[in-house]
């Protein structure tokens, strides 16, 4: 399992995490290339369906990265997203998929280091867990 490279999707808020990811880039902070970002206007837009879709398509881990508590540009989109993440975690658990494969993370636009560190930590965590027990069946 040591050579296992997890596929990770990060839904990132335009105003914070996506900007932080850019910042990690401009500071040349390295993080695992396993993490691939999909930009959303606010994590409040990330539907439970999107998170499920990522797992269906073969993600080993998914995280939703929004603004710090109280810092959402739209007042509370990040807390709504956090509640949805918890809901989907329960579904995953019922399906026998480790709920830790899905996570809500908060950071501000200025936190390039935090973005890189989170990406690293999350990737390591998923690497420990191994491949998602559910994988699309190759045709």
């Amino acid at each position: 399992m040591k050579n296992f490279e997890p596929e990770i999707v990060a839904f990132c808020c335009h105003y914070c995490a996506y900007t932080a990811a850019d910042m990690a880039g401009s500071k040349r902070l390295s993080y695992p290339p396993n993490v691939k970002i999909i930009r959303v206007p606010c994590t409040g837009k990330v539907d439970a369906l999107h998170m499920m879709r990522a797992f269906e398509k073969g993600a080993d881990g998914v995280y939703v990265a929004g603004c710090l508590e109280g810092d959402c540009h739209f007042k509370n989109g990040n807390t709504r997203a956090g509640q949805r993440v918890a809901y989907v975690q329960k579904i995953l658990e019922d399906l026998g998929i480790e709920p830790q494969r899905l996570e809500m993370i908060m950071m501000s636009a200025g936190m390039g280091e935090r973005f890189a560190r989170t990406a690293f930590e999350f990737t390591e965590k998923i690497r420990e867990l191994g491949p998602c027990p559910v994988k699309p069946i190759k045709k």
């Binding site: 269906e56 579904i91 559910v134 069946i137």
Partner: peptide, 8 residues
């Protein structure tokens, strides 16, 4: 969820 289950 059901699709995920069947894949499993």
């Amino acid at each position: 969820a059901l699709r995920l289950n069947s894949m499993k």
